[in-house]
C-alpha cells in the first residue's frame, strides 16, 4: 500500500456501486500530459501503459473537483446522495 493510500485508508468512505468520474478514453490516448495522474490529491487516476487505458479508482475520490478543472475531458459529477467520502474531522 502506498503512503498516500495509507492516509486515505484513515478516511471513511461510503462506496457507491457506480463511478461518478468518467474520463474520455479516446482523448486519454492522445493526451501527453496526463495531468489528472499528478494533481489528484487521492491519485484516483493511473495510466496503464500496457492496456493504454486510464484506471479510475473512484472509490477513494475526495470529491474536490480538481480533475474537473484541470482536464476538460473528464465528465465529473457528484456521487449519488449519501455516498462518497464522509469527513468527520476536517
Amino acid at each position: 500500500m502506498s503512503d498516500l493510500d495509507k492516509k486515505l485508508y484513515k478516511n471513511t468512505f461510503k462506496t457507491s456501486q457506480t463511478s461518478h468520474l468518467h474520463p474520455d478514453d479516446e482523448q486519454c490516448l492522445q493526451c501527453l500530459e496526463k495531468v489528472c495522474t499528478i494533481i489528484c490529491p487521492a491519485k484516483v487516476y493511473n495510466y496503464n501503459e500496457s492496456e493504454k487505458k486510464l484506471t479510475v479508482s473512484y472509490e477513494k475520490c475526495l470529491e474536490c473537483g480538481a480533475c474537473r478543472i484541470a482536464c476538460k475531458y473528464i465528465k465529473w459529477n457528484y456521487p449519488e446522495g449519501g455516498k462518497g467520502v464522509v469527513y468527520k474531522n476536517s
Binding site: 475526495l62 480538481a66 478543472i69 467520502v85 476536517s90
Partner: peptide, 9 residues
C-alpha cells in the same frame, strides 16, 4: 497520528 486526509477546491 493521522486521523483524516481531506481535499477541497
Amino acid at each position: 497520528e493521522l486521523i483524516e486526509y481531506s481535499a477541497h477546491l
